[in-house]
Write a protein that binds this DNA or RNA. Sequence first.
DNA 1: CTCCAACCTGGAGCGCACTCCAGGTCAAGC
DNA 2: GCTTGACCTGGAGTGCGCTCCAGGTTGGAG
Lengths: 137, 137
Amino acid sequence: MSGYAPSEAARRSGFSLDTLRYYEKIGLLADVERTAGGQRVFTDDDLGWLVLFRCLRDTGMPIAQMRRYAQLAREGEHTVAERRELLHHHAVRVEEQMRLLQRQYDHLREKIRFYERLPAPVPAAGQPAGIGPAVSR
Amino acid sequence: MSGYAPSEAARRSGFSLDTLRYYEKIGLLADVERTAGGQRVFTDDDLGWLVLFRCLRDTGMPIAQMRRYAQLAREGEHTVAERRELLHHHAVRVEEQMRLLQRQYDHLREKIRFYERLPAPVPAAGQPAGIGPAVSR
DNA sequence: CTCCAACCTGGAGCGCACTCCAGGTCAAGC
DNA sequence: GCTTGACCTGGAGTGCGCTCCAGGTTGGAG
């Protein structure tokens, strides 16, 4: 039910072995268990953390902030409000990010449409300026 | 109608002066006009390019690819198909990016809801595991 | 018991996209 | 004509998030 070798944890989380070690080194993952010989053993709990880190990372949270969150969680229940705050704040920024991405995507699509409306490679000159820099540039 | 000082171009494009110079240095912007004394004068055309670069950058296109695009555009009309291809390819990746972002955002929202459902700081123990690592972590 | 693939550590290196700096030049207002 | 703030150049430095490396250890299969 739990106890994954490093390679297995890497496979399941989608992070590289180096990244897993790195995350532990900088204090994102703390207290990862070890065998008598010193090799890491990841628990389901660790895997859960990794899923969260992936979510936060994919949505653009800087590592420093993830660290802060992990810190707070380790400090105990009295940090619940601050953790909620932190996630909420991040969510707001993600929403902005999504809006920007959508806007620029629309922009990009328009630009592509401009190219698609262009007649096939005809050496003619002078169509009305499309979207973007100068004619067809 | 055209001819902007560097600071004005920076203001309008939202890029820093250093970034404008950098973009020129690496060949994103080419042939920026100069005064007799050597100071840059940006045209509306340059501004148009900058708008495009902002769009591409905001959607995560690496600079190397933007350079390639700018290159092609400078080579002339016979590269139109390749440019369209390049933008189209990028658009596909942006779509993936948007889907991922949406998925992880939903994930994040669920996590936040978990915190919101948490009763106020009550020292009780043992609620069913929420989303993410262990209980409330 | 032996082998070898997987693992360990500390630390250096990398790729990206800027950003900053020193030391000098330009040009618009007084 | 002098001042001063905006601008110039080449090149070094920064911050982020890994990624790679050397040299050594571990542990399950045969």
